[in-house]
Design a protein around this nucleic acid. Structure first.
Lengths: 388, 388
DNA sequence: AGTTTTTGTTCTCGATAAGAACATAACAAG
DNA sequence: CTTGTTATGTTCTTATCGAGAACAAAAACT
């Protein structure tokens, strides 16, 4: 029982419903349409919008009138309203972007980095270069699990429980951080292939597999915020020991690491990724050993997805990273192996497996969604409404 | 955006908060305590309770005064208020009970059955024998997955997609049906070992393993309402083919079926369960082969739990059915194997593994919770408040 | 130019919860 | 036995919210 529910809370609640409708809509809509959408009267809509306009959250612009009736206004994000910054922090580069209500995104800066935690200072400096009073919340996507929201662990970079509270300190704007695979899934769930689904899953396949379970548009985090290591379940019977400390992980058979290992490459970041891409190209060209490696990879992917579908029953599964290549090149094999892993009675209704539509921008857009979730929080909104 | 949020909805919302507080509380509390708990004024609490009293949902009884201050009243379920009926339908027997607000349970009837769908008529007759105007919703727990909420599949009974809409027809009271393993988990989450946890899991181990992911006190159902078949993921490397149509299922190594197979018994319900219990007894007595079988079973359980914890990051995992015996007899082995399956960086914070505290009543109590969730639905409550 | 259609605006109304002031009924202290 | 203390119940006022009806306004259609 957190807080009471009073008339003022009611107003904030309905204003958030309105803002979220604007944020989530594919096309902008008018104030009258908003009233119908939310099931409120036109007078109430006018009052809600009026306050939000004064708080610089919404802006009304004259709608070009094509139909009959008195002219109305479109509800658009306020030009001086809050924005979210989003950072996609990768193993060798980062991107900073600004995202408005509604999802319009502007890339601000991008750079490579030296794989030491010093990069956080560089990112902070970039944020400072672009900082504006409009910046409300910064969403930060990084690879690797983040325990309890502040202890970052990226084994590939040799980062062992890096303390984020020391790197992202009080001089940062309000910041929310999460895992890239989870945020990519969140982006698909909010603005991509999984939009509107009650139960879905997303997997990002890079060197290994990370993913997330998406329920009603929310990415599940787990008790210590480190849910999503689906790649470290023994789903395909591998006998090998995994870098994570477990034997037989799914990720040993799916993803770039599996390809690289097969061709004797180094499982590092620079050359490893190139080699994996090279294998995919050779497989497309028909090289028998590359074809075999690709087939094994795709088959293992499908087998694992079937197993997970038995347990979690997603409506659809979207893929990003190398998963996009796998589904493009070997969809029938993946689906056949998925069916093989599905309990017989489920095979007539298998989960849809598809490439994500947000693509490479997944972590960035997911970070923005996470930041906007924080901006559209009742307490924060109440404060903003009453201060201005 | 389903419904609007008006002042009347606010009242219902707060009344539901109050009713749920009463329902979930371990000990009854007074009206003044309720006001503090919900963060509302005493006057508001009086108004809310007054309406709920008139609607026969709450009842105020004088509290024995031990302390100073003006005497107050305890909030208890109304003696003429709605009740939920709960049915636990097992493979050879069923139980019918009545459950009040707050969880007080009264067993009404129990019987064996002949394993044909005709048993539904017998259960309906039992419900009729005990039916009262107080009956609001019937919660029904059955083993086996129920696709889309109405197609029941129990392979052990030879029931292949039995159409529940034909068996539970218009002559039934309002009925909600779900899977027994999921409802056992719901019971643990609401009234048992998992109470108050944000992310937890429950597994019921019988002939095989069924389970559920519990998030904020809610059991996840999946897109087709058939989530939870964790036992049919290949987590332990078994080479065998499973009855479900997949190869290598976890359930081939954990549960009564694994014990029965090892000792050459029939994997049927009557003798199979007895044989499994016999093996457990012999293992306790020190019989080497039984000990080995029990060890294998427990080790496979732990190994699978570790894998699942990597993916879903539960705070705790509770067990029912044969899982209670396994945790009692082989906790160290289970925990060691779980740690082996956990990614190295998680091993210092493993999920708590424990026996459920609701025990055999899990499905029944879970069915009651599900039914009460339906009773405490805003629409239903609004109707009840305005009709009386 | 008049009609139709859609939306904006204004006003009233009922309901909600907050808050303050006061009443009440127990226990405790003298 | 009387008086004070304390926690709670009760009453009344007030601000706010959304609903709803009536009316005004502005476009397109006829």
């Amino acid at each position: 029982m957190p807080q009471t529910m009073t008339s003022a809370d009611l107003r904030v609640h309905n204003q958030i419903r309105l803002l979220r409708a604007v944020h989530d809509a594919a096309e902008p809509f008018t104030r009258a349409e908003a009233a119908r959408l939310l099931g409120i009267g036109r007078n109430t809509a006018a009052a809600l919008v009026g306050e939000l306009e004064r708080a610089r959250l919404l802006h009304e612009v004259p709608a070009e009138s094509g139909a009959r009736g008195r002219p109305t206004t479109m509800l658009v994000p306020h030009p001086e309203g809050p924005v979210a910054f989003a950072v996609d922090f990768r193993e060798d580069s980062w991107t900073l972007a600004s995202v408005e209500l509604g999802g319009a995104i502007t890339e601000l800066e991008a750079a490579e980095h030296d794989r030491t935690p010093a990069v956080f200072a560089a990112i902070r400096a970039a944020v400072a270069r672009h900082e504006t009073p409009r910046l409300a919340v910064l969403g930060f996507a990084t690879s690797g699990p983040i325990r309890d929201g502040h202890r970052l662990h990226i084994s590939h970079l040799g980062w062992d429980e890096v303390e984020l509270n020391e790197l992202v300190g009080d001089d940062w704007p309000a910041t929310v951080i999460d895992n890239d695979a989870r945020l990519a899934g969140l982006a698909e769930s909010r603005r991509g292939a999984l939009r509107g689904m009650g139960t879905a899953m997303h997997f990002h396949i890079d060197f290994d597999i990370g993913g997330t379970l998406l329920l009603d548009g929310d990415a599940q985090r787990g008790a210590h915020r480190i849910a999503g290591e689906f790649g470290h379940m023994p789903l395909t019977g591998s006998p090998l020991a995994c870098m994570c400390g477990v034997r037989g992980c799914w990720s040993l058979d799916v993803g770039a690491n599996a390809l690289v290992r097969r061709f004797g490459g180094e499982p590092g970041y620079g050359t490893g990724r190139e080699l994996a891409q090279e294998v995919l190209r050779r497989a497309e060209a028909g090289d028998p050993e590359a074809v075999s490696a690709l087939d094994d990879n795709a088959a293992a992917l499908g087998r694992g997805l079937g197993a997970l579908a038995n347990a979690l029953d997603p409506e659809a599964i979207s893929l990003s990273g190398m998963g996009v290549d796998l589904i493009r090149l070997r969809r029938p094999l993946i689906e056949a192996q998925c069916a093989e892993g599905l309990m017989a009675f489920r095979r007539d209704e298998p989960p849809t497996i598809m490439a994500g539509t947000v693509g490479e921008q997944g972590p960035l857009r997911g970070a923005a969604e996470m930041a906007w979730d924080a901006i559209l929080d009742p307490d924060r909104l109440r404060e903003r409404l009453h201060s201005g």
